[in-house]
């Protein structure tokens, strides 16, 4: 059974009289443990696809099975629960809570999962240690570097042990050296068996994944599997 199974997924936006086709009948399968990079020109529908995959957005039509359950017809609250359990999201702009420290930011998904304070704290600490920030837990986002912020975001995405890690241009706001550090972290996570899907504009970043999907005008233009580098 595929972890992700999209069948004829479309996402349309109505702008006045004009209809924008962000995704056109996309069909796609991703297996557990895959490491996928999505590429494509600006406005081609990458973020739209990521949002649908991450259950942040619902497709206009088509069927989306995640882990064997149909999520395309779910309502707001059910989707929130799926996001909480199955999805870890990393954004280009980090999206951390500015007034909360790293620890509390990472605890956030656990709060909405109903985990108790002690256990929550412990789990969040472990996640922060995993991304190498065990000594920065009480820093607020504005007291951290860009790379450290993105690590906090990765820790937050991983803390619930989700089925999928989704990252929409995670290195987009970082310089290339820090970007590589984040990519090294992803490589490590992929080797541990995590399912990772990331969007990027940079060919050499995409090359670090095992599979590259190219999107153009809301359609999948190519689906390329890479040979594992030695």
């Amino acid at each position: 059974m595929s972890l992700i199974r999209l069948q004829n997924i479309s996402r349309r936006y109505q702008m006045g009289t004009e209809t924008i086709h962000a995704l056109r009948e996309v069909s796609l399968e991703i297996q557990r443990g895959e490491y996928v990079a999505i590429m494509g020109p600006s406005g081609s529908g990458k973020s739209t696809l990521m949002n649908v995959l991450g259950c942040l957005d619902s497709p206009t039509s088509g069927r989306y099975e995640l882990n064997g359950t149909d999520v395309s017809e779910m309502d707001d609250n059910e989707l929130a629960e799926v996001r909480n359990r199955e999805i870890g999201f990393v954004f280009q702009t980090f999206n951390l809570l500015p007034r909360s420290n790293a620890l509390h930011n990472v605890e956030l998904p656990l709060i909405y999962a109903g985990v108790h304070a002690d256990e929550r704290r412990q789990t969040a600490l472990t996640a922060l240690q995993q991304v190498g920030l065990g000594d920065r837990v009480h820093h607020r986002p504005n007291e951290l570097s860009g790379g450290q912020r993105q690590r906090v975001a990765v820790a937050r995405a991983l803390v619930n042990q989700p089925s999928i890690l989704l990252a929409d241009e995670p290195t987009g706001n970082l310089d290339s050296k820090t970007g590589e550090e984040i990519m090294a972290l992803f490589e490590e996570l992929a080797q541990k068996g995590n399912t990772i899907i990331l969007v990027t504009h940079e060919e050499d970043i995409a090359r670090q994944a095992r599979r590259i999907l190219r999107i153009r005008d809301g359609l999948i233009a190519s689906d390329e599997r890479l040979e594992r580098k030695s």
Partner: peptide, 16 residues
């Protein structure tokens, strides 16, 4: 608004 988005993205339901 953005904070609300973040909270929803990590699993906050309407009630929360």
């Amino acid at each position: 608004t953005r904070e609300i988005g973040v909270r929803k993205a990590v699993g906050a339901k309407r009630r929360a």
